[in-house]
């Protein structure tokens, strides 16, 4: 009796698996799209800034696409697991992902990546562009990048910069700056921007690259100051902080966030998504949420064409830096 039951159950499972292998996939035309809820895969943990942006988009998009969007977190592998999941999914427009910098630029360069970050991907829209600022404790003797460079040249290998996520985008920005300025500094790596902020506040490192969101409260409180920002233009909420280019160092790197899909997605569906996402971007309710989660100053719209250009440009710019540091895979 017991054995028979066990065999029966095992057979049931085997049958189920066979059925599963049989009935897969069916195509659908763009006219009826979307006819069921879409999934937005976030390649980071719940609660982070990419996740919150993804959830903000997902909460507004039903207004413009008549179907809800469900956010799913697939963190790990420096973001590659989530991205790979989206790219390997059925390109039917029901599985989309959030764009971030790492898994499309530096990570595929430093690690073995199961996808091509440019060829396999279509970047449908970009929502935010996060600046990277060089920060120092407020009582540091420097007031702009030139002061810092002068000091660093006088004391080669003595000044220390704290670095969040070595091999990542902010690190590449800092290395590009170091090369442009021709200075030698010691790097102490950390795991997150807030760790770098803590190290700056505690005086354990001399400088660090932070996003303005990470530095904001400390700048306001007068414990940290920004020497410069690796942006194309000055930041709206810190108009006094000069860009690196203005100060004579050709470094322009910022962190994009948006929405992507597998490259094989039907162009008609891409168009529909692009239009809907633009409406989301301009939606007052969306802007209000973005401001609440601290992304207000970083909002920066790019349509599909511009996003594609931006991402491949960034990838190509990172390549030589990663290789020159010997971090390439």
């Amino acid at each position: 009796m017991k054995k028979a039951l066990m065999i029966l159950m095992v057979a049931l499972m085997a049958g189920g698996m066979a059925l599963w292998a049989g009935g897969q996939q069916e195509a659908e035309s763009a006219e009826s799209y979307p006819s069921k809820p879409m999934t937005l895969v976030v390649e980071y943990n719940a609660g982070g800034s990419t996740d919150m942006l993804g959830r903000a988009i997902a909460s507004i998009i039903p207004k413009y696409m008549s179907q809800p969007m469900v956010v799913v977190n697939k963190p790990g592998g420096s973001g590659m697991i989530g991205v790979d999941y989206v790219l390997k999914s059925n390109p039917d427009g029901y599985t989309l992902g959030t764009t971030s910098s790492g898994p499309f630029t530096t990570v595929p360069l430093t690690q073995q990546s199961p996808y091509d970050p440019i060829e396999d991907v279509v970047f449908i829209a970009n929502f935010t562009l996060g600046p990277i600022a060089i920060c120092v404790p407020a009582d540091a003797p420097w007031n702009d990048l030139n002061d810092l460079v002068k000091d660093a040249k006088a004391n080669p290998g003595k000044l220390i910069y704290g670095q969040n996520a070595p091999g990542g985008t902010t690190h590449m920005a800092m290395e590009t700056f170091r090369a442009a300025a021709g200075i030698d500094m010691k790097m102490i790596p950390y795991n997150s921007g807030s760790e770098v902020a803590a190290a700056l506040l505690g005086g354990h490192v001399n400088t660090g690259t932070l996003s303005p969101a990470e530095a904001a409260e400390h700048v306001k409180a007068g414990t940290l100051k920004m020497l410069g920002v690796f942006n194309a233009e000055r930041m709206t909420d810190y108009p006094d902080v000069k860009t690196a280019v203005e100060q004579g160092y050709d470094v322009q790197i910022a962190v994009p966030k948006g929405v992507f899909a597998p490259a094989a997605l039907d162009p008609a569906k891409i168009k529909m998504l692009e239009e809907a996402l633009e409406k989301v971007y301009n939606d007052e309710e969306f802007v209000a949420i973005a401001k609440k989660i601290g992304l207000g100053p970083e909002l920066y719209w790019m349509n599909m064409e511009d996003s594609q250009k931006f991402m491949s440009g960034m990838y190509n710019a990172m390549k030589p830096v990663v290789e020159s540091l010997g971090l390439g895979n």
Binding site: M13, G16, M17, W20, A21
Partner: peptide
């Protein structure tokens, strides 16, 4: 594990 991966 196999079951979760295939039949859900």
């Amino acid at each position: 594990y196999i079951g979760l991966a295939t039949i859900g």
